[in-house]
Design a protein around this nucleic acid. Structure first.
Lengths: 265, 265
DNA sequence: ACAATAGTGTCTGTCAGACATTATATG
DNA sequence: CATATAATGTCTGACAGACACTATTGT
């Protein structure tokens, strides 16, 4: 009740002399902030299974354990948290992806033995056929906290959920996977896992792998075609029997949120 | 390919001597982490409008500007990020709420003049009739970064979205509001804004205030009653005309996700 | 009795599920 | 031409929207 909206000018333009003095004297190093990292659950379909990229930690803590790739914000290179996540993705896979999003942020006093720590968890979906094998000695895989090599390994998510991962990474993986599964029920998100061209049957199989249930062919095609999420390339894929029309992702970047979820039961 | 799942024991149990040595020598103070805060968009229905709690900043930077309440993780008191958010809520309103959730985390080099900063944005829904006016001199409103009083002010969200808020708080408010509006379309989330007892007409009005559209009475009642989200208290509210049955929230803590969204158009 | 609000009956439209049917390749 | 897979036709069921209708109170 004491501040009128009109009485203040837009922040941060200008800045009073007092504010400038404050900022000149301010030194972040005087304050202890939680250890903050960005962790990635990078998914791809490999050998007809949903797999997640893990790294073997080459440094303490949890040295030798498998972990989700991640690292610290590089203040000189990353303009935003999404940029940090994107950088991590490219470092590990050599490719970029439109299908990169924040899942949630987990922070607690006990999740890392170094002290109160926070991780901003993201997931990324990639087309496994586009992966560029990363040289382990690649300088870009070094981070401010890690100057050694990290061995990359893909593992089926069902195995990874049973493995002893570093820190709370099994829980983080479960959260990322939960988000992916949920969004698969009401969006066209799994398009992010497909190669440039694919058949609708192949796309349906990917949905089925993620959800762990069989889907109705007719409903599935109707949804995606009516929404304009995919478009025919004009070519066909010849197999042993009737050839299948090839499709590509249409209107990439669109979200394709469907009005009802699949398998609501 | 080089690490067998079986070859590692569960983390963090045990911990090798080398790991213990590493942790003994490790000092977080040597690393510069982004400035990390938890910010809150606390919503309530006041005067038939959706309002948000703002504070007038009493310290630099952005001194004098209105801002979403927030602050640093208190490593000695907060076990998790949710605990930090909950503590902030209680400090500002004097009450607790089951309807407190993380929205997203925003981080960039430019959002705070002190340097690379991150905020973990949450929203909370409260029953305005339960608010305990907080003494401005309440010691618990002091944080490690702020030892002065903060003036609390409720403002209709539509006004707040046009006001000059500190930092990027107008954007944060828009994000929290977007989440609230979206979830209002397919969950029973606005129950968090209701008093202990209410009529279905009152509840419908709250939904309408949030969404900014009129809803169909029959559909609205059918949804909530069929889902078991509310239950009759057995009492009625006498007004000028036909009395209305009073309801309370049923199965609090349940999420009540509906199979279809409202006003999908 | 009338005005105003609470509450119900019931029809329609949309879209996912089920499943039968037709289409088109290859061997 | 037999068979496997691709692709379509069409009926059903669940549930939101529309809106007319009935119910119950105070004045």
């Amino acid at each position: 009740m004491s501040v009128s909206t009109k009485s203040v000018s837009a922040y941060p333009m200008g800045g009073s002399r007092a504010e400038r003095d404050f900022l000149k004297r301010y030194d972040r190093r005087e304050f202890l902030a939680p250890l903050t990292t960005v962790d990635m659950a990078i998914f791809a379909i490999i050998d007809q299974a949903l797999q997640v990229l893990l790294v073997e930690r080459s440094n303490f803590p949890a040295k030798g354990f498998l972990a989700l790739p991640g690292g610290f914000v590089d203040e000189t290179r990353d303009a935003t948290l999404l940029a940090t996540a994107h950088r991590k993705l490219v470092e590990k896979t050599g490719i970029s992806s439109q299908f990169l999003e924040q899942v949630e942020t987990v922070g607690s006093a006990v999740r890392d033995p170094r002290g109160w720590s926070i991780t901003v968890l993201h997931f990324a979906l990639i087309d496994s056929s586009a992966i560029v094998p990363q040289d382990s000695s690649n300088a870009s895989s070094k981070t401010s906290s890690n100057t050694s090599f990290e061995v990359i390994r893909w593992m089926p998510v069902n195995d990874a959920l049973l493995a002893d991962l570093a820190f709370d990474h099994r829980d983080l993986l479960a959260r990322a996977l939960g988000r992916l599964r949920n969004k698969t029920r009401y969006t066209a998100l799994p398009l992010g896992l497909m190669p440039d061209e694919f058949t609708l049957t192949e796309l349906q199989h990917v949905f089925e792998i993620i959800l762990g249930v069989k889907l109705e062919k007719k409903s599935f095609r109707r949804r995606l075609l009516d929404a304009g999420a995919v478009e025919e390339t004009g070519t066909v894929q010849h197999g042993v029997h009737r050839p299948a029309a090839m499709y590509r992702v249409a209107n990439i970047g669109n979200d394709f949120v469907f009005p009802r979820a699949l398998e609501s039961t």
